[in-house]
């Protein structure tokens, strides 16, 4: 029998008895960032394919909420900081080894882009909108001229943003649950999936809804594959990663993960979307809300469970 105890009575706040340094702010931000990345990617992609008028909700309407999502996400990140007044230090340096550093810079690119993208479609989405000042109108005309360039930059940086939300966690080798490179693609696909259902919610065009229901089905299938792949990787790895996986395979997170994320957030909406595509009538917001809920729960569960996983010690 082996027993290890700290006899000097260490009880550092937020560290002992179990790491608890990141709370709701981080998973909420990961969700909002992923969602915004999904919306912006589809907007840029379909704009570049010249589908601006056919898929109006994708390119013009849904991106209206992206700046709001990003601002809320940034606010959540700011609330997480414990030395808040020093946050500008993030933007005094670029440290390529630190995902959080280049993620912060990515946000510095994506957030203004999201605002610009929303602004150049304002008058289209809200016909009575008036920019009032001459220089604002000039600015809009200027950005409109370079829309394709903006779309290219947005497509690339939204993908980086989507992947970053996962890489942020997977860079921590001290937390075996996070320490898997699957997390980057998994969070990206989940972000694209939540973006797709928001577009469905905003769309009034039947073809557009159908297209995004198909896209979302494909993304859900990829997500399920990545989740299975992640567990296969864990179970074939070292003891610490087997322990990390067992949090979800019999451990405390078994029921929340498989019920809230996999069944409610992936399988159920996939069935509903399939039925919809097979021409069964049902409210379209039902699978959409489930996908959004599943995406949020995925982030919460991974962030909290990751802090429970550790090295044998």
């Amino acid at each position: 029998m082996r027993e290890e105890i700290i006899v000097s009575g260490r009880m550092n706040h937020l560290i002992d008895p179990q790491l608890n340094i990141w709370h709701w702010q981080i998973p909420l931000y990961l969700f909002l960032g992923g969602l915004a990345a999904g919306i912006l990617f589809f907007a840029a992609f379909f704009c570049l394919r010249g589908k601006e008028t056919t898929y109006r909700a994708t390119v013009k309407v849904a991106p209206m909420i992206a700046p709001l999502l990003l601002v809320l996400g940034l606010l959540a990140l700011f609330l997480d900081l414990k030395h808040k007044l020093y946050f500008m230090q993030l933007y005094t340096t670029i440290r390529l080894q630190s995902p959080m550093s280049w993620g912060a810079w990515t946000l510095m690119v994506v957030t203004p882009l999201a605002f610009i993208w929303a602004a150049i479609h304002m008058r289209d989405v809200f016909p009575r909108w008036d920019w009032r000042y001459r220089w604002l109108k000039d600015l809009e005309a200027f950005f409109n001229k370079y829309k394709k360039v903006l779309a290219w930059i947005m497509a690339i940086f939204s993908i980086i943003l989507g992947v970053y939300t996962g890489i942020l966690l997977s860079a921590f080798n001290a937390r075996p649950l996070w320490n898997t490179s699957i997390l980057g693609p998994l969070f990206l696909v989940s972000g694209l999936s939540t973006g797709a259902v928001v577009i469905i919610l905003f769309s009034k065009n039947h073809d557009e809804k159908k297209l995004f229901a198909r896209i979302d089905l494909l993304l859900i299938a990829i997500e399920l594959f990545l989740i299975i792949h992640m567990f296969m990787g864990f179970l074939a790895s070292t003891q610490v990663q087997i322990d990390a996986a067992s949090l979800f395979l019999g451990g405390p997170y078994t029921a929340p993960f498989w019920m809230l994320v996999v069944v409610m957030g992936l399988v159920l909406p996939a069935i509903l979307e399939t039925l919809e595509l097979m021409k069964f009538r049902m409210p379209v917001y039902f699978p959409a809300v489930l996908v959004l809920f599943g995406g949020l729960m995925l982030r919460f569960i991974i962030v909290y469970a990751g802090q429970m996983s550790r090295w044998l010690y």
Binding site: L19, I21, D80, K84, Y86, Q89, A171, A174
Partner: peptide, 11 residues
């Protein structure tokens, strides 16, 4: 800035 990344990264 007190982001906590290093705390989470220490095994």
């Amino acid at each position: 800035i007190g982001c906590g990344a290093c705390i989470a990264s220490c095994p």
